[in-house]
């Protein structure tokens, strides 16, 4: 460690995982759009940051989950931990008129230490902010949605949201990290090399 820390240390993070399933009370089917967001100093080396799963119907019986088993493979390179990638799930259903109906949003940071994780991501959907909008959404059967699908990853602006939570999704992730140069991070970024 002779060098001073002016030189930023580059590291890469490889995420392999799958969106396993979701359980939402009162819903019979659903599909999931996922996004992985990252900060300014991050760049994608390989893989896709977004995707859409198939529409899955839940099986008859006591099991209330709908299974997607959809792969996520993305690799990043960065010099700054700030802006660590977050995964955002938006779960939709298709109604009788073929319209998309939101069932829930959820988000979580990709784990920062290498290893295998089972993330339980709780889902919530926004509620209409005024009585009039509530009424129009009831008449037209259109649910309120976030304009920006990345909104769940933002820290600011949350205080104006009224939400209803229901259900959760299970995401399995395997995280590998690689630090080129020095062993400067304790977290996991260095462990497991």
């Amino acid at each position: 460690m002779a060098e001073r820390d002016e030189e930023p240390t580059a590291f890469s993070v490889v995420v392999n995982g799958q969106i396993e399933l979701a359980e939402i009370q009162g819903s019979k089917s659903g599909y999931c759009k996922f996004l992985v967001t990252h900060g300014e100093d991050w760049q994608v080396l390989d893989g896709l940051e977004e995707g859409v799963t198939h529409l899955s119907k839940r099986a008859p019986g006591v099991d209330t989950s709908f299974v997607w088993n959809f792969p996520i493979n993305v690799a990043y390179r960065s010099t700054n931990i700030f802006g660590w990638p977050q995964v955002v799930l938006s779960v939709y259903d298709v109604d009788n008129l073929g319209r998309d109906v939101i069932l829930g949003y959820g988000s979580a940071h990709i784990p920062s230490a290498p290893g295998t994780y089972n993330l339980k991501i709780r889902l919530y959907k926004p509620l209409a902010s005024s009585l009039l909008q509530h009424l129009t959404s009831w008449i037209s059967r259109v649910q309120p949605e976030f304009v920006d699908p990345k909104f769940p990853t933002q820290t600011e602006g949350r205080e104006v949201v009224r939400a209803q939570s229901s259900g959760h999704a299970i995401v399995t992730v395997n995280v590998m990290t690689r630090v080129s140069g020095h062993n400067l991070f304790a977290c996991g970024v260095t462990r497991g090399l």
Binding site: Q25, R162, A163, Q164, S165, S166
Partner: peptide
């Protein structure tokens, strides 16, 4: 900051 207001289902 301040979080969203949540109305949990059940």
């Amino acid at each position: 900051g301040q979080t969203q207001v949540d109305h949990p289902f059940e």
